[in-house]
Amino acid sequence: MSGACFGLILYASTMVGLIIAKSYRDRPRQLQSIRTGIEMLVTEIVYAATPLSVALENVSQSQAKPAAEFFALTGRGIAEFMPVRQSWAMGLAYLQTSSALLWADLEALRLLGEVLGVSNRDDQERHLLLACRRLEALYANAVEEAARNERMWQFLGILIGVVVVIVIL
């Protein structure tokens, strides 16, 4: 096997390691961004009584991707008379493919989508704050996992590559 093949194996394994490390690094940031967005929704819904589609659009403008796109997609669906649950699920499907969020993170968001817009402001506030608390706990867990795994995967990728090359040799 040529040196080029070994180089390719090392490159591929290093990249896989870096991608996994990046997902550990991105998850807390993305969770934080969504939580901030939901806190802004509290203001939009509870204090300004802004209709959901407009509130989500406003929130999306102050966040970075992928949170911005999640809120914008959901808001657009609602503006086009799509049921909130369906529109929210569309946003979650986007997060599933375009973010570092895990199933537990998406599940916490899905629960919020079940009750969004269907009750008075007091009740909406309760559900939004509950979602914030859930996301806060997930964020703490994501920070812990990032501290434990991010650096490890940065090196583990290249290390696996080296081991594979040695085994082949």
Partner: peptide
């Protein structure tokens, strides 16, 4: 009800 309230009953409390 969802269409008229824009799925936002709280906004029309």
């Amino acid at each position: 009800v969802a269409a008229f309230s824009q799925s936002s009953l709280y906004a029309f409390e």
